[in-house]
Design a protein around this nucleic acid. Sequence first.
DNA 1: AGCGTTTAGATTGTGCACGATGAAATCGCG
DNA 2: CGCGATTTCATCGTGCACAATCTAAACGCT
Lengths: 146, 146
Amino acid sequence: MLLDDQLCFGLYSASRAVTGLYRRLLEPLGLTYPQYLVMLVLWDRGAVPVGQLAEALQLDYGTLSPLLKRLEAQGAVRRVRRPEDERSVLVELTEDGVAMREDARGIPTAVGRAMGLTRDELAETRAVLARLTGSVAAVLATPADG
Amino acid sequence: MLLDDQLCFGLYSASRAVTGLYRRLLEPLGLTYPQYLVMLVLWDRGAVPVGQLAEALQLDYGTLSPLLKRLEAQGAVRRVRRPEDERSVLVELTEDGVAMREDARGIPTAVGRAMGLTRDELAETRAVLARLTGSVAAVLATPADG
DNA sequence: AGCGTTTAGATTGTGCACGATGAAATCGCG
DNA sequence: CGCGATTTCATCGTGCACAATCTAAACGCT
């Protein structure tokens, strides 16, 4: 029942440390880490509805709506209601948002370097964490006990 | 530059999934995950000053002060200024706080099961993440570039 | 003793993260 | 066609997480 014996705390610490690293790397771009994740999806896929962002990032509207509002306020994205379905809001990059991609080019490798892991360790850990996330999500998906 | 290719996103997702699992497990105790981490330290060490909690959890006063205030409001801990150094605040368990330990007994194994990893994978991942956290922290400790 | 410095902690402001609720548009079924 | 159900998104409230600022107590140096 000790703190450092539990993987959870390691996970929690590592996640916060990495977020802190992104904070420094993204500060020149004026982005936070979750905002950067949204930009990654948009750079890859182009315009997507809010719901697809929510699914890709596993975040709910309560988190994404104000986040997208801030991204829009700073001119990185635009939100447009889709004419063929007025419920849906399409999030698309502005020119500034497209241009940001250049400024963010070096970030993934910088983060990779800072982590100080071998290529194999990176891949292995990524795979294990994906399995872990899936397993935990499955447990959480069962309504009552777990 | 894809989302799922990056360990960071795996880390971020896994951390949030595990926190969600704790949310469910801790709900009967009326604790959040960070509050539970504080309780773990107190159950292990007894009364400690706020600064030691901050160091153990790698959180700053801005996070801990209100968190401890809430823990005190619900009767799990007490905060007492130390007479021999009035700057320092000692956080100690109340009787209710001590008693909570019993209710929390099953949580670590429940989490371990939900993660669905082998004992070796758990240990290995914990070790890799500790190294990663240290490496990132070292980079962040260097003032400007990284 | 006097006074600047350091230390321990609290407070404030911003931005996630999530549960709960609400509102509008669309769909489906009789 | 009418109307309840579903889908899509926004809003609100609570609780982290962190940077910046502030306060008060203790320390150190002359």
